[in-house]
Amino acid sequence: MKYLCLAYYNEAAFETLTPSELEALGQACQPHDDALRQSGKLGTVASLRHREAVTVRSRSGRISVTDGPFVESKEQVGSFFLIEARDLEEAIQVASLHPAARLGEHLGWGLEIRPVETFVP
């Protein structure tokens, strides 16, 4: 089964990092991502640009577009990845190897893991 893992972070804490600290953090994350990829459990992984989100929804029968992420909170979704696992227990084990679960505690990093249901017509 596939599981979507959403990696959250504290935007205010993240913005205090200098460019060199951001680069060092990215370099520290790379071995974790590589190990997950080599395990065969990691599918797609990507970072999301913050402050470039829009929300699209229907309002009175018309499409409404609003700037910014839908949820207003100190935590933002910063990246996502898809993993393959037998069940939720294994998904937790696999996801715990990701940098958002292992590094950056001071940045408020955390993971939300959701099973993905595929709809076949």
Rank of each mutant, 00 (worst) to 15 (best):
V45C: 05
V45K: 08
V45S: 07
V45T: 02
V45F: 00
A46G: 09
S47H: 11
L48H: 11
L48V: 10
H50L: 04
H50C: 02
H50V: 00
H50K: 07
H50I: 02
R51A: 04
E52C: 06
E52M: 08
A53V: 04
A53P: 07
A53Q: 09
T55R: 02
V56Y: 07
R57Q: 14
R57Y: 13
S58V: 15
R59D: 04
R59V: 14
G61L: 12
G61K: 06
R62T: 14
R62C: 12
R62K: 13
I63C: 04
I63K: 04
S64R: 14
S64M: 14
S64L: 15
T66P: 01
D67F: 00
G68P: 14
F70K: 08
V71C: 12
V71F: 12
E72T: 05
S73M: 09
K74M: 01
K74T: 03
E75L: 15
E75R: 15
Q76C: 06
V77A: 15
V77H: 13
G78F: 10
G78Y: 09
S79N: 00
F80M: 05
F80Q: 01
F80K: 02
F81P: 00
F81M: 07
I83L: 13
E84F: 05
A85S: 01
R86S: 10
R86P: 05
R86A: 09
D87P: 14
D87C: 09
L88E: 12
L88F: 09
L88W: 03
E90A: 11
I92A: 12
Q93T: 06
Q93R: 10
A95R: 10
A95N: 14
S96Q: 15
S96W: 12
S96D: 13
L97I: 05
H98K: 04
H98C: 11
H98G: 06
P99D: 00
